[in-house]
Design a protein around this nucleic acid. Structure first.
Lengths: 203, 203
DNA sequence: GGCTAACCGGATGAACCCGTCCACTTCGGC
DNA sequence: GCCGAAGTGGACGGGTTCATCCGGTTAGCC
């Protein structure tokens, strides 16, 4: 591949990362191309479908998750490791609108991406088992509960990122509370009146 | 209003109710008109904006919520009333994709709809206070926590309605558990492997 | 420096959705 | 029955996005 082509590809991925985070996975391809400073054709040549671009962008995001889960497994305190992994994943997700969608989507053609995702789930199951064995995590915790939390977290929308982050933190801690033995204190609620948004053309 | 016009209006609302429930609030207006068996112009004459139609459709859905909350206030057991109200609201929401969006949207022009929604929130605050006074509900429960739960619940997506309902029930019960004093047993997890959906053009 | 293949950007046409306009139809009072 | 007003449906222009095609440009080997 020629040097300029490689540079353009890099800029496309960077632009897509920003826009996916800001606006979700369905930003127009032309917008991504414009922000990258290239033509639409260049984008389509590198990534024939949107899914190709999504996989490229979120491979390293997935890597962050995997890292968090690996760290959790290495944590000397099983419950602390479990909690910090969950919190890291949820925090990464709430500041990146596309991340949830990418994490909850299947990419039948991206074999290694799928493999990495499955591996993350498997290691997380170990983390959970360790926390159960130490008597901190409720035995009814199921491996689908992480997915459930991620979906629920993804439902959070708020006008400002700060409000969204606060709401996400409260939700996360609430669910962790439900799974923790024995009971821990509750996190503070989000600022009032910051949830509702007017019905407009934009979603 | 002429008799045939009234009938057409009724059919438009019915079609919109079905489609909003199936596909969310952003179904094309033409699709609604087609399902109702009328022309687009007829739809636009009755409901100049999409918000008008949404308000009309979800007024009675909101009525169901209000009824559930009123029932909860009349329940002799404060905690049971609180739980059943929350469960009813979440269940109604998970089988109707548009309901969440409608409940979380503001309609500055629909005065009575807004008034009803605000009243529902106020009565629900009474229900929560009663459950706190009886010692069942955690004092940290905040009135925004219902909105938080509704948003989280709205994030749940699953290929089949059954899986979505199961996931919603688990999430709801988990959060209720976190707010309940003392601890109650956890609900069963959803069936495995039913959460992830392939990335397609349809959202 | 010259040349060729790779690369680039914008133009392009198809598909979709919105909201309006207009010629035709039908209700229902008389 | 008649007739006017209310009602109807589909066509249409404007806007957006997608994904492809093509003529001009540039990198980088010789």
């Amino acid at each position: 591949m020629r040097a300029d082509a490689r540079e353009n590809r890099r800029r496309v991925v960077a632009a897509a990362r920003e826009l996916f985070a800001e606006r979700g996975l369905d930003v127009p391809m032309a917008t991504i191309a414009r922000r990258a400073g290239v033509g639409v054709a260049t984008l389509y040549r590198r990534f024939p479908t949107r899914a190709d671009l999504v996989v490229e962008v979120f491979s390293d995001q997935l890597g962050v998750c995997v890292q968090a889960i690996d760290d959790a497994l290495a944590d000397p305190d099983p419950w602390h490791g479990f909690v910090s992994a969950v919190e890291k994943i949820c925090a990464a997700q709430v500041v990146d609108r596309g991340f949830t969608a990418a994490f909850l989507s299947e990419f039948p053609d991206a074999v290694d991406y799928e493999r990495e995702r499955v591996r993350a789930e498997r290691v997380f199951a170990l983390v959970a088992q360790r926390a159960k064995d130490s008597g901190d995590l409720h035995p009814d915790f199921d491996r689908t509960d992480l997915t459930l939390l991620i979906m629920a977290n993804g439902g959070i929308t708020a006008p400002t990122p700060e409000a969204a982050l606060a709401a996400s933190r409260r939700l996360t801690t609430l669910l962790l509370t439900a799974f923790h033995l024995p009971t821990t204190p509750l996190p503070p609620p989000a600022p009032l009146g910051l949830y509702h948004t007017p019905l407009g053309p934009g979603r």
